[in-house]
Amino acid sequence: MVSQVSAQLVLAAKTGPELPSIDDFLPDPILFQGTPFAINRIILIRIVATIVLLLVMCITAKRAKLVPGRWQGLIETLLEFVRDNIVYQVMGEERGRRYVPMITTLFFTIFAFNLCGVIPGMNMAATATVTMPLVFALWTFVQYWIAACREKGFFKYLRGELMPPGVPLPIDIILGPINLLEVLIIRPFSLTVRLFANMIAGHLLVATCLAFTQFYLIESPNWGIKPVGALWLLGGFAFVCFEMFVAALQAYVFAILSTVYINQSYPEVE
């Protein structure tokens, strides 16, 4: 038995560490295979994260007191941060009141989904594929078009975007298609790619550090190289902490850009 384990370790040492790849983000279905309701690992993570987030918010709201405890105080601080430092700071209180629920939902959902990448047992951000970031970006896209049509009218808004006031006609001919491309494609595309690309990069960095840690610290029979595995472990821990920061940062960036795009649809913002 000992000889078999030793042989396996030597074989692993010869083949090298099992590094992460793009295939990690395209896992096979684990439930309801072969049906339109097939669920793979990432979808399951999204479901679990959504349920946990709803439970946390509902239980906190149900147990809310006039004098908040530490947990209630933390949640209220985060809610006030989104309201005051994102929505109201960009839109003002009167206009922003309409969008506080939307932007708060975006911020908390994206933050929770991003954090799944550093939670043991999940180890994969729920936003690490294009689907969820695209859904969030399309929500923003629909909202700023609704705001534009409601406040300016469709054709007036489109004319203002294609032909900005004070710009000479020859320049309008050049800028028009570019501006149209921006409001139709570039804004939702940039929101989508920025979010899921950062989550993919974070997963690959953390997984690579842990793969080298396992290879040098556990699988390699060469004791002289064990300290290298310890260094990779420290690097993995550092990247986990950094990934938690990025999870919050990307939620903030997505929320504030969504607020800015919606605010630009109002008449006085040209």
Rank of each mutant, 00 (worst) to 15 (best):
I200A: 05
C241T: 11
F254Q: 03
W232Q: 07
A197N: 08
L210N: 13
C209L: 10
G236C: 10
V193I: 05
I200W: 07
T213E: 15
P188H: 00
I200R: 04
R187D: 12
C209K: 02
V240T: 15
C209E: 12
A230T: 07
A248H: 14
V253D: 13
F254T: 02
I218H: 05
L184E: 11
I186R: 05
F212L: 13
Q250Y: 12
L233K: 00
V253S: 10
L210P: 03
A211H: 03
V246A: 02
A247N: 08
F212P: 04
Y216D: 04
V246K: 00
Y252F: 15
A255Q: 00
I225A: 10
W232G: 03
Y216F: 15
L191G: 04
I225R: 06
L234C: 12
M199L: 02
V240S: 09
A211Q: 03
G176I: 12
P188L: 01
F196M: 02
R187Y: 11
E219S: 10
I218T: 11
A248T: 11
L217A: 14
A230C: 06
G176R: 08
F245V: 14
F196H: 04
G202I: 03
G235M: 09
F254R: 01
A201E: 09
Q214R: 10
P188Y: 01
T213P: 11
G176W: 14
L184C: 09
H203K: 07
F215D: 03
L204N: 00
N222L: 15
L191M: 13
L234G: 12
P188G: 01
T192A: 05
V246W: 01
M199V: 00
S190E: 12
A255Y: 00
P221L: 11
L191W: 08
T192L: 04
V193Y: 10
A197P: 04
V193C: 03
A211L: 09
F196R: 00
F242E: 08
T208G: 05
E219H: 10
P227Q: 04
L231N: 03
V240K: 09
M244A: 13
F237H: 11
W232S: 11
F239M: 13
W232P: 09
